[in-house]
């Protein structure tokens, strides 16, 4: 179940929506159960977030129907 007031991204790896949180120091953190912290080999769309505030973030991939 998706909850109100929570941001989600769809993870291709896990085939489900995963919540993402704003990290206070900048960036986002996702709870991808597929890679479970293994940013080192994760292939999923969420990988770019796994490094939370580790530096540069590429812009989000544009998904059709994205809110502005």
């Amino acid at each position: 179940m998706l909850e109100q007031e929570v941001d989600y991204l769809f993870c291709d790896w896990c085939r489900k929506h995963v919540p993402c949180h704003r990290v206070p120091s900048g960036g986002w953190e996702v709870d991808c159960p597929g890679c479970a912290g293994e940013c080192v080999r994760c292939d999923c769309y969420l990988r770019r977030y796994c490094f939370a505030n580790r530096g540069d973030f590429p812009p989000l991939r544009k998904v059709e129907g994205d809110p502005k």
Binding site: L2, D7, Y8, L9, F10, H17, C20, G26, G27, W28, Y49, F57, P59, L60, V63, G65, D66, P67
Partner: peptide, 10 residues
């Protein structure tokens, strides 16, 4: 520094 993530990917 980061862009907002989409609320949901429809």
């Amino acid at each position: 520094m980061s862009e907002p993530a989409p609320r949901i990917d429809p």
